[in-house]
Design a binder for these strands. Structure first.
Lengths: 334, 334
DNA sequence: TTGTACGCGTTATCAA
DNA sequence: TTGATAACGCGTACAA
């Protein structure tokens, strides 16, 4: 059974009010009794109940972190950033998975509401309108990561998909490629379009004519398989370079190339997106666009703190960073 | 401002007691008023306060999941398993990182205690005696993952390091290797010894003499670099195969081999441990010992549920599974 | 400087 | 079938 301030009060022969004050260093309590009570609390192993405090103060110093699944290689670092800043500010994090299942999304939102979290951070690949409405009904600050939406309580931290994809494509163009393919993912409609736009903008700027055949949108599948299917871009359409929606897709393509004796990057250059851990470990190491995941998590939590302190905040669109490794090569090496 | 049962009571013209009962389907309330009140609650957007419920019931339906850092590639799947089972049972999960920092470990434990979590799951590479004592003072069921300790409230789920390492070594022996190296990690003293024991047991059983030169314990470093340093086993001591402490280490070795033009597996076979995501993506795909991470998480949470229901539980030692990929090859291929 | 009384939102006991 | 009251652990206005 946990020790309460009443228990301490009894032992000290004072009221629980005095104990409460003494423990929090209230100035109106004499230095001596304060010291005495604090010492007593220590001895008795007193730890205040956040539950009772929350009931009284109407804030829980708790936030909900909603993910589709924490097993997504993109997420752990984001969560790490969130948790770090949260912990430093005295907040604890509820981790909740929605698994992209509408039913679970509802229970997750309801649970968050029951738990009276002070704020919510969501990184879901899809925040449907229904889901978004549900979220907003909680009347609590919400920060979306990589998923802009409109709404009074909705704010966002996101990577600039257009800029990132353009950067990647420009890299390929600079080293001499002209037949450049794009592998999109229909399961991520929004950012897919943005990355496609970035790709097209780079081509246009370089005066390279668009060829619809070079844009490959595999049927919905897991990301890796989409990459495998994309080999046709090379086999049927003779692209010399491919920009993939993300690293997993790029690695899928990379793997198939190995199986088909297609040398990367000599025969085909490949660029990914995200810079997940595995990107540096595959062979050849993957050129990619890095998303500052740790920082995104930190920023999201900082934004939450600002919102809770009634400070005004601005949505952030972060640039992706080109990481050149060994999966891309000049088409005309010197 | 959140709706409370008192608000509903006012509107319905009854006491808050009646509302409380009606909402929970208490039999002593007339069917009609029950229906009426439930409907009213729905309309008013009532969501019960878990905080108030917890204060009264003295349980929070909350557990603490302590990790060193969620960015460790081993952990996400474990957490996924925990969260899944927890959610299905009506529990929510606090995710807390200790970063292997003694000071943070203390604050984490204290926070868990303040929050009055019903139980704790810990997967830390090191649960020092001090840390363990602190943990046990909370008087709450605790399940350790991959870290056996003794204590009244301490239980564990772990992979059988000895068996796993033996399995891996036997695989290498079976395909003809006799000069087999072992790369250990001093940062994980306990399981390091166990894996070493498994390695030695396999050699002994096969009648292969032990050679201390083939056991390499690099100075504490990050796991990847330890793998890189292990190249000396091949260069100086002519091993034809190496068992690495974990996949990251194995991938470090793999990467260095590529840089030194050492063909894997033709010149050197490599086996890892864990079967992290990246293991299947590297080239060549890594032969390794799989830890059933998702299942370990599920089992840990199930064990917690049993403990909370006063059921008796047994510590579990799970076998590792040999996953043969392409980083190992018979030394005398047919 | 200290204590009394009340409220936070919910459930449970007892009486009506 | 329903309601008044107390209790969970804590913080605070007000009184002493």
């Amino acid at each position: 059974m946990q020790v309460t301030i009443k228990d301490i009060a009894k032992v000290a022969g004072v009221s629980h009010t005095t104990v409460s004050r003494a423990l929090r260093g209230h100035p109106s309590i004499s230095a001596e009794t304060t010291r005495h009570i604090q010492q007593l609390a220590e001895q008795m192993g007193y730890v205040p109940s956040a539950v009772a405090q929350s009931l009284h103060s109407r804030q829980t110093f708790t936030i909900g972190m909603v993910v589709t699944t924490i097993a997504d290689p993109f997420l752990p670092q984001v969560v790490e950033g969130v948790e770090k800043v949260a912990q430093a500010a005295g907040y604890s994090v509820f981790l909740m998975s929605s698994h992209n299942d509408p039913e679970q999304e509802l229970t997750v939102v309801e649970t968050l509401q029951r738990r009276r979290v002070d704020a919510i951070i969501v990184t879901a690949s899809r925040v449907g309108s229904l889901y978004g409405d549900q979220l907003e009904r909680i009347q609590v600050p919400i920060v979306l990561i990589n998923n802009q939406e409109n709404g009074e309580f909705l704010h966002s931290i996101a990577v600039d998909d257009v800029q990132g994809a353009r950067l990647a494509t420009e890299h390929l163009i600079e080293v001499g490629h002209r037949r450049i393919g794009f592998v999109g993912l229909l399961t991520r409609p929004k950012s897919n379009v943005h990355r496609l736009l970035g790709y097209q903008a780079a081509l246009e700027k370089a005066g390279i004519p668009q060829d619809p055949d070079l844009i490959f949108l595999p049927p919905p599948n897991d990301d890796f398989q989409c990459g495998e299917l994309a080999l046709s871009l090379h086999l049927k359409h003779q692209v010399t370079a491919v920009l993939c929606y993300n690293d997993i897709t790029a690695i899928g393509l990379l793997t198939t190339c190995r199986r088909h004796q297609i040398a990367v990057p000599q025969d085909l250059s490949i660029v990914g997106f995200d810079d997940i851990e595995a990107a540096q470990y595959v062979s050849p190491p993957l050129t990619t666009i890095r998303q500052p995941r740790l920082r995104m998590g930190e920023l999201a939590m900082r934004m939450i703190l600002d919102l809770l302190n009634k400070k005004s905040v601005r949505d952030q669109l972060l640039p992706g960073e080109l990481i050149v490794r060994e999966s891309t090569l000049p088409i005309y090496p010197n």
